[in-house]
């Protein structure tokens, strides 16, 4: 497993991507307040609703939008209310699930792992190691096992690092009191959990980590079946998007960043614009992934037909 880890991580591209993710994660953490209580002190839920409505109106009328990006991010991260635009429904998110929601909204770790899986499999092919490995006693069996363990280790490592980064940034920028009991937060008053904010955050992070390990390994298993790199990339992106959508929609019925809700929405364009104004980095990643997928798909289909034409000539 150690060797597989080294193969995954001793790669300039991977190191660069990891650095980029850490910077993005730090930036995002620095402008997002983690807990609603700070906001509740100064602004009511109705005010938020009003602000969001104004934003939509302004967009409709082609005016500039002055809404604070932080408001919209908080709104769309569902830290503030369970607002459903179409039904004009306002309510508090009182369940612990809202907290997990926040954790999963930044599943950067998984995107990173998907990239590492692609690079790692590509490395095996480029180096022609597959030939000498396939004549060993256990063929690729040992490697697959080691790789899957390595992927799990990478997920844990990346999540731990992002988690620590988040905690530090929130502590410094958001001045969060992590020692405070969870039920002290207005949104979590009904909770049965008796621990502190930090304890709850750790539990959530572990849960998210387990989900990510499962998803990452599914991506790896599927990726092993794909022969060409282009298929590998498309397959990984596709698997990631589908599994993320499923997990989001199972756990969070009104998850605002999920593609499922996004496409279901009647206000598709409007929501996109609001979120874009809201600097939703997570959403940018979603859009980037979908864009990548579409480009790859088109390229692949074009290549297929071009090859077919050449063969027929």
């Amino acid at each position: 497993m150690g060797y597989e880890l080294r193969k995954c991580l001793c790669n300039k591209t991977v190191i660069l991507i990891i650095l980029i993710f850490f910077v993005v994660n730090g930036l995002e953490a620095s402008y997002k307040s983690l807990y609603p209580e700070k906001v509740y002190d100064t602004t009511t839920t109705e005010t938020y609703k009003k602000l969001i409505d104004e934003a939509f109106e302004n967009i409709d009328e082609g005016r500039d939008v002055y809404l604070s990006s932080i408001f919209i991010d908080r709104f769309y991260d569902r830290q503030i209310t369970a607002f459903v635009y179409d039904e004009e429904q306002v309510g508090y998110e009182t369940e612990e699930v809202a907290f997990v929601n926040y954790e999963t909204s930044a599943m950067y770790g998984l995107i990173l792992v998907a990239v590492i899986v692609i690079i790692s499999i590509d490395l095996e092919r480029k180096t022609r190691m597959t030939q000498i490995i396939s004549v060993t006693e256990k063929r690729n069996g040992r490697i697959h096992l080691a790789k899957q363990l390595a992927i799990a280790a990478v997920v844990v490592f990346i999540n731990a690092f992002l988690f620590i980064e988040n905690v530090i940034v929130h502590k410094l920028v958001g001045e969060i009191d992590y020692g405070m009991k969870l039920y002290n937060i207005p949104g979590y008053r009904a909770t049965l959990f008796n621990g502190s904010i930090l304890e709850y955050k750790i539990i959530c992070a572990i849960g998210v980590c387990v989900i990510e390990i499962i998803i990452a390994n599914i991506i790896y298993i599927l990726a092993c079946f794909l022969k060409r790199n282009i298929h590998l990339i498309i397959g990984s992106v596709c698997t990631y998007v589908v599994l993320k959508m499923i997990s989001d929609n199972i756990a969070f019925k009104n998850y605002p960043y999920s593609l499922f809700s996004f496409f279901k929405s009647k206000n598709l364009v409007k929501e996109f614009i609001v979120v874009r104004i809201g600097n939703g980095y997570t959403y940018y990643l979603w859009i980037a992934l979908v864009f990548l997928f579409v480009v790859m798909l088109i390229t692949n289909v074009c290549n297929y037909f071009m090859n077919k034409t050449r063969r027929s000539i």
Binding site: Y3, R6, K7, R128, T130, Q131, I132, V135, T136, E137
Partner: peptide
């Protein structure tokens, strides 16, 4: 499996991990 346990093979173009 048993056969491969007793096998050593150097292909014409052997693969390596350059970073190792």
């Amino acid at each position: 499996k048993e056969f491969r346990r007793h096998l050593g093979f150097l292909p014409q173009e052997c693969g390596y991990y350059d970073e190792f």
